[in-house]
């Protein structure tokens, strides 16, 4: 088990090193997210809506869209020069590669959220007392689930030729339950006092299911 975790950590830190060295994925994802924030907050101004009611869904749509862009490239650098084969032989257990990539994607999502959430809140001028703890828990569990689905689908799409648009097409239907849960949970976090944690349990179950699926199926996905 420690051996397994050690390998996950090794692959993960290797990915981070490459990412921070080349910066190509991180920068484009963050810039894309910033533009989404701008476009959405600006268009909502034009609609004369009560911003407090649309805060949660729009936030999560922004995160969902930027995540599909960011996670589309997680397995790409393993595909160049067939590095994946050397990595498969080295890892022994395929799923350690999956979880390393998952943590990489999760880190990317957190970085994006770190910039998007405050900025979006400022832009929409959201002002209401809220349950910060529940909000953060939702953000954590939501990103966790999103990174799980994204990593799994990306490991599928990277093996196909026309993989550019395939990730969102395959991912969005799977993300529907997650999207409902995070939006509802964010909503109840924002309405301080009436906050219910019910959706958090749903998110935990969802996240667990999508941890178990790759544990079983990932050997079949990465078969070469």
């Amino acid at each position: 088990m420690t051996e397994y975790l050690r390998k996950i950590r090794l692959i993960y830190s290797k990915d981070l090193k490459i990412e921070f060295r080349t910066m190509n994925n991180l920068v484009s994802t963050v810039v894309f997210a910033l533009m989404l924030v701008f476009i959405f907050s600006f268009s909502l101004q034009l609609a004369d809506l009560d911003l407090n009611t649309v805060y949660a869904p729009v936030l999560w749509v922004i995160i969902l869209f930027s995540s599909t862009l960011g996670m589309d490239r997680a397995f790409l650098r393993e595909k160049e020069n067939d590095v994946i084969e050397a990595l498969l032989l080295a890892s022994g257990e395929c799923s350690s590669i999956f979880f390393a990539k998952f943590f990489g994607n999760l880190t990317l999502l957190f970085l994006v959220e770190l910039i998007v959430v405050p900025l979006y809140t400022v832009f929409t001028g959201y002002s209401s007392s809220s349950n910060i703890l529940l909000f953060l828990a939702t953000l954590l569990l939501g990103s966790w689930g999103l990174a799980l689905i994204g990593t799994m689908i990306n490991s599928i799409t990277v093996q196909l030729r026309s993989s550019r648009v395939l990730l969102p097409i395959l991912m969005f239907p799977l993300a529907v339950p997650l999207l409902i849960a995070v939006i509802e949970s964010t909503n109840s976090a924002l309405k301080a006092g009436s906050g219910s944690e019910g959706w958090l349990y749903f998110l935990i179950i969802f996240d667990l299911i999508f941890v178990i699926i790759p544990l079983i199926l990932f050997d079949y996905i990465l078969e070469l």
Partner: peptide
């Protein structure tokens, strides 16, 4: 295993 490609990380 040494395959057709060098299987190394070019950014490292």
């Amino acid at each position: 295993y040494m395959g057709h490609n060098h299987m190394l990380y070019e950014a490292l």
